[in-house]
């Protein structure tokens, strides 16, 4: 196992862990989006699907724990990398070359990451906690909580916060995807075109659809 620890403690190994955990976390977005798109389809279908998840509790719990572990590794590794990088580069240039040499999304990964974490904590403490209570009390009016309640899109400030967080998620994924496949050494491979298409799906299509849901329920539903 010595070789494994040597690998994950190396500069490339740490980036590799960052890329792998990031990609696995991104996969969850597909499931979550698939579920949420039902909000736009039909109230009853959404309610019965979320209600049905109550019956799959052991499986859902396992996935939740796995996601939490992935998040912890991604965050701790990110903090570790940031501290080391600051140590390697204690004094920057007096003049910052800004976006002349690198994209905004690549230079703001820590800021976008922290905002996404804040959003996630808020999202779990409101919607997720509420849904757990509703599962326990056999209340299946999940749609109303999301679309109309004060902890959902019924609150304009929450809608705006969701949209900002999702734009930052898009920026995080835009650089994250390109960076992950560069770290895996695949950015110059024959799969380059496929990888670029998958990247656009993750940083543009997925956050775009989440934002569409937020805008629809925040500004147009019941108005």
């Amino acid at each position: 196992m010595a070789w494994f620890f040597k690998f994950i403690n190396s500069s490339i190994g740490k980036k590799f862990i960052m890329a792998l955990t990031g990609l696995l976390l991104s996969l969850f977005l597909i499931i979550h989006l698939g579920n949420n798109l039902l909000l736009l389809v039909d109230e009853d279908i959404f309610n019965s699907l979320v209600g049905g998840l109550g019956g799959l509790k052991p499986l859902v719990r396992v996935i939740e724990v796995l996601l939490a572990i992935l998040f912890m590794i991604h965050i701790i590794n990110g903090i570790r990398l940031t501290i080391q990088n600051k140590k390697s580069s204690p004094q920057g240039n007096k003049v910052n070359s800004g976006t002349e040499t690198a994209s905004i999304s690549s230079q703001t990964m820590a800021i976008s990451g922290i905002t996404i974490l804040a959003f996630l904590i808020f999202h779990l403490r409101t919607i997720w906690v509420k849904f757990q209570e509703m599962h326990a009390s056999q209340d299946h009016e999940f749609f109303n909580v999301v679309a109309e309640s004060n902890i959902g899109f019924g609150n304009i400030w929450i809608t705006i916060f969701y949209i900002i967080a999702l734009i930052l998620l898009s920026m995080h994924l835009k650089h994250g995807f390109q960076s992950a496949f560069q770290t895996f050494g695949l950015s110059d491979s024959r799969y380059k075109t496929i990888i670029n298409c998958i990247a656009v799906f993750f940083w543009f299509v997925i956050p775009g659809l989440f934002i569409t849901i937020a805008i629809y329920f925040g500004f147009f539903f019941n108005n």
Partner: peptide, 22 residues
């Protein structure tokens, strides 16, 4: 070479691409 690079205190690549521009 990677081990020496790490020991010498260079930072970790963030894949921003600034290096290839400069």
């Amino acid at each position: 070479m990677v081990a020496t690079m790490d020991d010498e205190g260079f930072g970790n690549c963030s894949n921003t691409g600034a290096c290839e521009v400069e």
